[in-house]
């Protein structure tokens, strides 16, 4: 046995003490550094195992969105002829690209929320055997998906560049910021849902329904203007009201965080325009709010989560 009997270099010299249940931890910094390392390792693990034992491996992460993109383009672009505007500043009027600019971020977000939601239950083996801060699970699962997301966005930017001009690359810094915001939003939601999932396994079924609803309620396969002009007109014409009030579709859509995020991406990648101050603020607010709620839920429930698994 070639093990040195001396204590390891990273263990605290005098031995640190910690107290449970209400006592303040004296090694918060050490904990944080450890969490960071664990997040990194789990993320790498996710990336490595995602496509293990599949013949096409990582290719699947491109086949999936491509097929969805193709189906939706044929059905909505070709058959149903969804009315969509040409790019505002670029030289583009292609439905596939109009769709992809919003669909790729959406796919990432919904996939991340679903995977993050399941992360505690899936990793129950790990949770019941070793102690580590629980939040690293939803976090690392989602971080591992950002890799695929980034590659997809890169490919999209190249294709859009070829079709409509490479000025689109000007927006890359802003696109990166919105990618961070949408990831944070997904992490926050996933943290709350992962706890809910431990207590009620129904959560996953409810969420798969809700995700479908959410998808169609978000202007991804159609432009927002279709709702605010055309549909609003028809609703008003028929005199539909709620509690005697006209139905304010634009306001309702404004409350949908997915609409805000996908809208911002479409503004940059399809319209070649900077997001408005409103878009910046709304997306930032959603990201911050979601993370805060996620942290609060986690703080309240994570202590008992392991035994409820």
């Amino acid at each position: 046995m070639a093990v040195s009997p001396t204590t390891s270099p990273t263990s605290p010299p005098g031995g640190s003490s910690r107290r449970l249940a209400g006592g303040a931890s004296s090694s918060v910094r050490e904990d944080r550094q450890r969490s960071f390392e664990i997040v990194r390792n789990l993320t790498v693990r996710e990336v490595r195992t995602q496509f293990k034992r599949t013949a096409l491996g990582r290719l699947w992460s491109f086949i999936n969105p491509l097929v969805t993109l193709a189906i939706l383009s044929v059905v909505f672009g070709l058959f149903l002829r969804v009315p969509f505007q040409p790019s505002r500043n670029g030289d583009l009027h292609v439905f596939v690209l109009f769709l992809a600019a919003a669909l790729i971020p959406w796919n990432f977000m919904s996939g991340a929320i679903t995977a993050g939601m399941n992360s505690l239950v899936v990793n129950s083996g790990l949770l019941t055997k070793v102690y580590f801060p629980r939040f690293v699970l939803p976090m690392s699962v989602i971080l591992s998906m950002t890799l695929t997301f980034a590659i997809e966005m890169g490919v999209l930017l190249v294709v859009v560049g070829l079709a409509g001009g490479f000025e689109v690359l000007l927006f890359v810094p802003a696109i990166a910021v919105f990618m961070v915001l949408i990831s944070a939003f997904a992490i926050g939601i996933a943290m709350s849902l992962s706890i809910a999932m431990v207590y009620f396994r129904d959560t996953q079924h409810i969420m798969s329904l809700f995700m479908q609803l959410w998808f169609y309620a978000t202007p991804i396969i159609y432009p927002l203007t279709l709702i605010t002009d055309d549909v609003q007109q028809r609703v008003d014409d028929r005199g539909w009201t709620v509690l005697g009030q006209a139905i304010p579709l634009e306001l309702i859509y404004g409350l949908n965080p997915a609409a805000a995020f996908t809208g911002a991406f479409r503004t940059m990648i399809y319209d070649y325009a900077w997001p408005t101050a409103g878009q910046w603020v709304i997306c930032l607010a959603w990201a911050v709010a979601s993370v805060l709620v996620g942290l609060l839920v986690f703080r309240k429930f994570s202590a008992r989560v392991v035994e409820e698994l």
């Binding site: 107290r19 449970l20 102690y131 202590a303």
Partner: peptide, 18 residues
């Protein structure tokens, strides 16, 4: 509880070192 995987309802556990 000592390993921190479970949290006791009441009482404290103090450990020294890793």
């Amino acid at each position: 509880c000592i390993a921190r995987i479970l949290q006791p309802n009441t009482g404290t556990i103090t450990t020294r070192g890793r």
